[in-house]
Design a protein around this nucleic acid. Structure first.
Lengths: 167, 167
DNA sequence: TTAAACTTTCATTTTTTACTGAAACTTTAA
DNA sequence: TTAAAGTTTCAGTAAAAAATGAAAGTTTAA
């Protein structure tokens, strides 16, 4: 396998993985492309490499920047804007996790809290419902907190120790 | 808010959360419904509660069973099949994580390994590509392994200790 | 101050994904 | 056996999500 083929395969795979996890395919592909580019790319470059329209490129680059995992760069003497991806993978993971927590998990938690707060005295059915949703609330909250904790892991000795034990 | 409204809200929210994470909405809704049902439900029950067709119910119940998070039950004297959800949330999380690892992450890892194995001697561009995809391979592998480790956490003292520290 | 270079927006179209419903299939009780 | 009760399959349809492209908007160098 030579370079062009490998690169393409990587971009396609990363795009597919994105879709499976609820991230728009093109967004994941642009990110993949920028990840493996040694130089910042212009919007034109992205359009050409992925064969996508200007609008699509613009919207997805914007989304990636909103997520904080792609940055705009300016080259002196050039009028165009260029883009690079966050390449530190720990940083990348933390940003994605935080963003998804904020956008998706936190709102779901609020609903869980609300629905688990109804009066359980009415029926056996209701009792069971309240119990289950309470458990779920606790569980999701715990999982969500873990994201914050993982963020801090590198900053404390026990975290690093644990990471070693976990290999 | 009374029971019926809360239940519906819960099912809708769980369905939406599912979609955002790449799990078909109806599948997530059925799972939500079964989670908060104190009794096993028949396919008819599911169809009626969620207003979905027989085919849809059948296919998604099957998918949930393939994932190992919904079980078939038989009531004595009844010909119909009934369904219950895995209600132990730790167990649920482990099963989902393992399944997604198997279906999505493992195949992606294979690709990452392949594409990062091309000969990097050709150009600077290629060198950078190989380096980045190698890093990504290591990172994803580490993350994937963590799933296995988390599975075992409850079985060893240091795991439990860590969980406590993490709250 | 303006026009060329570039970016964003969004109504429309395309693609992808999910759902329906009826026919085929399976199981079981009589 | 067989027919009633129940389940699965899948071709066709509907709904949802993403992409296009042209017009509107913005920036900048002269």
């Amino acid at each position: 396998m030579e370079f062009a083929e490998a690169k393409n395969k990587f971009i396609q795979t990363w795009g597919a993985l994105g879709s499976q996890w609820g991230i728009n395919k093109t967004m994941a592909q642009i990110h993949a492309l920028l990840m493996v580019s040694s130089e910042p790319l212009s919007m034109e470059d992205v359009m050409d490499e992925l064969r996508i329209s200007r609008g699509n490129a613009s919207m997805n680059l914007r989304a990636l920047m909103d997520w904080g995992i792609v940055y705009k760069e300016y080259k002196s003497g050039e009028r165009k804007e260029f883009f690079t991806a966050e390449k530190d993978l720990d940083e990348l993971a933390v940003k994605i996790a935080k963003e998804r927590s904020k956008r998706e998990i936190k709102p779901a938690l609020k609903v869980l809290k609300d629905v688990s707060s109804i009066n359980p005295a009415t029926s056996l059915e209701t009792k069971h419902f309240v119990e289950q949703t309470k458990n779920l609330y606790d569980f999701v909250l715990k999982a969500d907190n873990m994201i914050d904790k993982v963020t801090e892991i590198k900053d404390n000795w026990i975290g690093r120790l644990v990471m070693k034990i976990m290999r």
